[in-house]
Amino acid sequence: MALDPTDVGKIAELARLEISEPELTSYVHSLTQILDLVGQMNAVDTAGISPMAHPSDSPLRLRQDIVTEQDRRQSFQEIAPATESGLYLVPKVIE
């Protein structure tokens, strides 16, 4: 499965990555190589095999719906790039 620069540009956009022109060429090459490697999976017929998402097939645990965590807003926000009045600041998204 060969990718072209347009494909890689699209993937980068999906992943919110900005890829420069020289990087693009190298990624087209290495991603194509990896998809070739991955393509070896087709050597095995897996029709009817139930997919395994997880090593422990048991269902996820449930717990009581009660508050167990303390409020640590301040210590969490101390490490944020930008906060104000307990809120995380990002560039304006609504005009």
Partner: peptide, 15 residues
């Protein structure tokens, strides 16, 4: 570079 490569492979195969 390698982290970006893996993120892109993942984004592609899940798309």
């Amino acid at each position: 570079e390698e982290v970006k490569r893996r993120i892109m492979i993942g984004a592609y195969t899940l798309s």
